[in-house]
Amino acid sequence: MSDPSETPMRPASEVAAQVLTQEADALRLFAGAIPPDFDRVVADIARIPGRVIVSGIGKSGHIGRKIAATLASTGTPSYFVHASEASHGDLGMITEADICILISNSGETQELGDVVAHTRRFSIPLVAISSREDSTLMHAADYRLLLPPAPEACPMGLAPTTSTTLTLALGDALAVALMEARDFRAENFRTFHPGGKLGAQLSTVAQLMHGGDEVPLVSIDAPMEEALLEMTSKGFGTTGVVRNGVLAGLISDGDLRRNMARLMDSKAGEVATLDPVTVPPTMLAAQALALMNARKITTLFVVQEDGRPVGLVHLHDLLRAGVA
């Protein structure tokens, strides 16, 4: 009999590839076998007046926390309740306006018993996520989200690996389906992510632009002396040119150089670049930055649907906000 200690070790990269392949295969299997109750769960969550309460223990608890956080950040009020703490007073966090999602791979987790009993007593909708269809939890639930039969990636088949990956992906699927059901948009997303780079990228042009008297504007018939004073006093190196209140063009440093020979004898409209690139106030700041980069410009006038200018956004404003 060979000595196990003499068995050659596989390269770690080979082990990683096997685990990832095995879990990817399980996800593909799951994608082709979405639980029949999934649509009903999404519809029920979308209509309830309360929150989604997620509970579990151990690795299932860790996954449950992430699912609750993802739901909350994508417009579905959600909260994680630890199964053990629920038995010591936290059941009060679960109300009749809520819906519960309980996670247990075996479906026999004893610590979930009090939460199950609480939902049955107060007719709170119960969603079970488990890999055992005939388990106690699945029998007690109103909705059953069954995980497909896929072996754990652990060499002994014991450590929660594939099963937790499947549960996590199922939570993502629920969150995204609910986003679509609620027509959840980028502007809604920013409400729950105001900080950091993501919050900056989800800012709108209206939130970062200069408005009111800060916007450099002159009439299309204004003499260039007036246009130069406007450009200098506002400090953006440009001025908008308006006709009947609508932005007709803009004057930049480049326009001044191109018309130097006859500059002071001209009207603003004769020097301006007509029909300039503009953006609406509702455009995302990240989109405005991409437009600036593509056109190699540093300022954009912000106009309403009728063409009336309401602001100006500068490249430096976007960089200071952390959009880049």
Score class of each variant (00 low, 15 high):
N188Y: 05
D134S: 07
V271R: 03
G64R: 01
T273Y: 07
M231H: 09
D306F: 03
G92C: 08
A72S: 02
D25H: 10
T273N: 00
T21W: 02
S131P: 09
L284H: 10
H210C: 02
L208D: 06
D221E: 05
F192H: 13
S266Q: 12
L284V: 12
S5A: 15
A175N: 03
A159Y: 06
R308I: 13
N259W: 14
D306R: 12
R132E: 15
I297F: 15
A173N: 11
T232I: 15
V81C: 01
P155K: 01
Q304E: 15
L250E: 13
G311Q: 02
R120Y: 00
L228H: 11
E152W: 10
S203C: 13
L263I: 04
M138F: 12
T238Y: 04
F189R: 08
L274P: 02
N188P: 07
L300D: 04
D37M: 01
Q201T: 12
M264E: 07
I94H: 02
E133F: 09
L174A: 01
Q22R: 13
L315N: 06
L319G: 04
S106Y: 01
G311N: 00
E108Y: 14
A128S: 15
R120S: 06
A68N: 09
M260D: 15
A117L: 05
R10F: 13
H316Y: 09
T282V: 13
M283A: 05
